[in-house]
Nucleic acid binder design. Structure first.
Length: 186
DNA sequence: CTTGGGATGGTCT
DNA sequence: GACCATCCCAAGG
């Protein structure tokens, strides 16, 4: 299965956030392969989104949000966890990214359990900090090109259609009337 | 099932 | 010096 092309990510951030639902995240580490189906995402925009890291200005941390679409934006948060985003925006705006919040584990479940230090399959990847732990995504993956079949990429999934639920984004205190958290019913 | 507090450190003001 | 796009565990219903 081939990676999604750059053009997939060169659309409005909200469109891409919805479009990523049902797609497959693949992590290759040596001969090991871990994968899961994306079931929850969030869109983060630019100047019109006070909850976004890119709201104020381009900085060392958020610069990926302003650079090439289809690459990974990884950041460290709460002193302990990494969050994995996909850079996505149309040509009219300067910054944007989609946070991957929840994936349904597919391949490499034993490796995920080992990476997480947990055996409970239910809590393996159902949160942005949990799935980066399970897939061993850290700042080393900052800026990785997700359109190439290398260490980390995204392909078409098996899910073609499903009902999408929009809700306020999690863990933020502003812009709560923007329903930019998206989930797909399996 | 839900709630609340602590862990922990980079980033921005 | 304050703020986090979080998670875990323990305690209560």
């Amino acid at each position: 299965m081939n990676s999604l092309p750059r053009s997939f990510y060169a659309r409005s951030t909200i469109t891409v956030a919805k479009g990523l639902l049902g797609k497959r995240v693949v992590r290759k580490i040596g001969s090991q392969r871990i994968s899961g189906i994306i079931i929850e995402t969030e869109a983060y925009l630019h100047k019109d989104d006070p909850a976004s890291h890119a709201f104020r200005r381009k900085t060392e941390r958020n610069k990926a949000m302003f650079e090439e679409v289809g690459r990974a934006y990884v950041y460290f948060t709460y002193g302990m966890y990494f969050c994995f985003n996909v850079v996505a925006r149309n040509s009219k705006v300067e910054a944007g990214a989609v946070l991957i919040r929840n994936i349904h584990p597919e391949k490499g479940i034993d490796i995920m359990k080992k990476n997480r230090g947990k055996n409970n399959e239910r809590n393996l990847t159902d949160g942005p900090g949990k799935l980066t732990q399970a897939l061993d995504i850290t700042k080393k993956q900052y800026g990785v090109d997700l359109t190439r079949n290398s260490e980390l990429f995204i392909t078409d999934g098996l899910l073609k259609r499903g009902k999408i639920i929009a809700a306020p984004r999690i863990g933020i205190k502003t812009a709560l009337d923007n329903l930019w958290n998206f989930k797909i019913l399996l």
